[in-house]
Structure formats: C-alpha cells, structure tokens
C-alpha cells in the first residue's frame, strides 16, 4: 500500500494505492491519526487506486473516521472502485460513511452545510 498526501481547497486528500489489509492497515491508521493530531481533521480518502480492503482495513478506516469526527471533522471517501464498494456495502459501511464519485465532489462536500 502506498499513501500520498496533498491539500485541495484546505482539505487533506489521502491517496491510497493498493491494498488496505492486515499487513498495511496500521500504517494507514498511523498516517491518518498523525494528520488529525496536526489539526487536519477534514480528510478525503482518494480510493481510485485502492483495489482491496479486508476486515483489518475496514477497522482502520472506521477508526480514522471516528477520530476525525471526534475532532470536529470527517473522513470522506471518493472514487471507490466496485470491488471495494461491495465490501464496504456488505459491511454496512456505506450507511455510516459519506462517499462521493470523485475527489472533487468529496472536497466540495465539506463546503456544504452539514
């Protein structure tokens, strides 16, 4: 898994490439937690190159969402590919996470009234 961070309109965009799983989930959680601790509480996960997530990956995503929300922000997902979306849907995550067709829509969503 590779993680790439960038800023877009004041929102931290976290590009995730590869697989979030039992071998990589801790890295993702550490990266996201560090950003939230630094005050970057509004995050978008760019999932366009994320090709797999296991239960460990789901746990790290949920942990990051909870952390961001506890600090007044949110982690929103963008461009989720169909295989990953199926796992998120099966796990009920699509009911508790906000997700958007692309990064731009996810970034803009933070400007909209809650």
């Amino acid at each position: 898994m590779e993680i790439e961070l960038r800023l877009s309109g004041g929102i931290t965009v976290v590009g995730i490439r590869g697989s979030v799983d039992g071998l990589t989930a801790d890295d993702l959680m550490r990266t996201l937690s560090a950003r939230v601790s630094e005050g970057a509480v509004r995050l978008v996960a760019d999932c366009s190159a994320l090709d797999y997530t296991s239960s460990a990956g789901l746990r790290s995503l949920l942990g990051a969402v909870k952390l961001a929300r506890q600090h007044g922000g949110d982690l929103r997902l963008a461009a989720i590919q169909p295989p990953v979306l199926r796992v998120l849907d099966l796990s009920g995550f699509t009911g508790i996470l906000k997700y958007y067709p692309d990064v731009e829509a996810a970034v803009v969503s933070f400007a909209e009234p809650a």
Binding site: D21, G22, S54, S55, A56, L58, R59, L62, R86, V87, D89, L90, S91, G92, F93
Partner: peptide, 23 residues
Amino acid sequence: LLKSQFAFHGLAHHAEIIPIIPE
C-alpha cells in the same frame, strides 16, 4: 442480517476476515 452480522464480526475480530463474494 448478512450485512449487520458481517459488519459486527469484521470489527470484532482481531485478525482477518477475507470476504469472497462471487459476482
């Protein structure tokens, strides 16, 4: 029920559940 049970177990398990859902 499938979704809710799978979500619960996925979050509760310390190791790995690898879902294989044929299309």
